[in-house]
Design a protein around this nucleic acid. Structure first.
Lengths: 107, 107
DNA sequence: TTCTTATATGACTATACAATCATATATGCC
DNA sequence: GGCATATATGATTGTATAGTCATATAAGAA
């Protein structure tokens, strides 16, 4: 299923980037419009717009139009679960590495 | 915590690529040496070696030397959980899109 | 219709990434 | 030491990606 793998990779890529992670974090509280998102994550409007489009195209964000404003939201709860598990990995890695440093310092 | 975001992104990037996903899938059954991995996933030895190094550097694979052979294994169970959740997203997306096509075909 | 605000996009630059080929290094065996 | 096998890496190429700036488009308000 290598074609499936390519869709899988695209979904994961939609989260595997610092700016996009900031967007996902900000959307934990629910739907937000672009004009709220880009100041909150401290990125340019155009850059934010591109990332939002990318994430929507790859199926992890929903998009809703209301007048001039466009509201984006995280579409699948698994997105947060994935970020949380990746965070757990980072945390454990940091712990493991600092333990290793302690062991080395003791000789 | 934007510096944390960058580590997080790196961990997710370690899975967000078709060849690396093939490696993760193959390692579901446990530790394997490079000489078993690259024929199984049908990639060049050198390319496989680079991806394995990348994944180990970013903390998602462990590496063990035994004679000439190097054994790699998935280090954190969360890696599989992440892939499984991403798979669930892809599956749901495919379902949603095919439903949409059905609705459109009915007018 | 004109102005303002919100969002998207074209053109560009710089950087990162994946893959390949050839070669280097390491280990064990004879 | 010389050879075979396993793995890693340098050099290169082509492609993808992130970010920026300027501009286009769309909607609503005056």
């Amino acid at each position: 299923m290598s074609s499936t793998n390519s869709y899988l990779a695209d979904v994961l890529k939609s989260m595997a980037q610092a700016t996009r992670l900031k967007i996902v974090e900000f959307l934990r509280d629910g739907e937000r419009c672009v004009c709220e998102i880009f100041p909150a994550i401290d990125e340019e409007q155009s850059n934010t717009s591109r990332h939002l489009a990318y994430m929507q195209t790859h199926g992890i964000l929903s998009r809703r139009k209301e007048g001039v404003k466009i509201y984006y939201a995280v579409k699948h709860p698994e997105v947060f679960e994935i970020v949380d598990r990746a965070t757990a990995i980072v945390k454990r890695e940091v712990e493991m590495r600092s333990e290793l440093i302690n062991v080395m310092e003791r000789g």
